[in-house]
């Protein structure tokens, strides 16, 4: 069974004639464990597609089912729980909180959870270990390189163990060597079974993905 079923979704922005068709008819299925790269020119609808999958952006038409949940038929409370259970977001230039240490930054999604402090700490350290930042857990973000900050941001997205990671140009601000390190981290996560959907501008990154979706004018470019 597909983990994510996207059925003929469209997204139109704007009222009264200023209608922008950001996404105009996309259908695809994404299986558990896939690593999808979403490629396309600026304005082709990549971020719109990603936020629709993440339950943050109501499609104008069509349905998205995740683990057999029709996410936009859920009530807002259920959709909020859907995001908490299923989705981890990684954004480009994720600003970490400057006066909190790496560990404290990763603990933020837990600020409101019922887990004991000891459990939260060990869980966060485990994730920092995974992204290769455990030895810098006590540092402040200012004392980290851009790539290291991105690793902490990824740790933060992973800490609630979401089955789906949505990443919007996570290497957009990094040089090519640092990018390759971050992509290797995503590839490692993928090997462990993590489902990842990543928007990227960089052709270099495609080799890490198990499938590429090419977008053009709000549609999947079938030629690719």
């Amino acid at each position: 069974m597909a983990l994510i079923e996207i059925e003929n979704i469209e997204k139109h922005y704007g009222k009264n004639g200023t209608n922008v068709k950001a996404v105009s008819g996309i259908s695809t299925e994404i299986t558990f464990g896939e690593f999808i790269a979403v490629l396309g020119h600026s304005g082709s609808g990549k971020s719109t597609l990603l936020t629709m999958i993440g339950g943050l952006n109501h499609p104008t038409r069509g349905n998205i089912r995740v683990d057999d949940l029709d996410i936009y038929a859920l009530n807002p409370e259920q959709r909020a729980d859907f995001r908490k259970e299923y989705i981890g977001f990684v954004f480009q230039a994720f600003y970490l909180i400057p006066y909190l240490t790496v560990l404290e930054n990763v603990l933020i999604p837990f600020a409101i959870s019922d887990l004991s402090a000891a459990k939260r700490n060990s869980r966060a350290m485990q994730i920092l270990e995974k992204v290769g930042m455990a030895d810098k857990a006590d540092r402040l973000p200012d004392e980290l390189s851009g790539g290291e900050q991105e690793r902490v941001a990824i740790a933060r997205a992973l800490v609630n163990e979401p089955p789906i990671i949505l990443a919007d140009e996570p290497t957009g601000n990094l040089d090519s060597v640092t990018s390759a390190g971050i992509m290797q981290l995503f590839a490692d996560l993928h090997r462990e079974g993590q489902t990842i959907i990543m928007v990227t501008h960089n052709q270099e990154n495609l080799k890490y993905a198990s499938r590429t979706i090419s977008m053009k004018d709000g549609r999947i470019d079938q030629l690719n």
Binding site: L3, F32, G33, D67, D68, L69, L74, N75, E77, Q78, A80, D81, F82, E85, Y86, E161, P163, G193
Partner: peptide, 24 residues
Amino acid sequence: QSAAVGQSVLSGKRERVLGSNKSK
């Protein structure tokens, strides 16, 4: 095994999401 890994990661999630149906 691939399918089984998927199932175990997802287990209980759908119920927790639908459980937040307060008054429908």
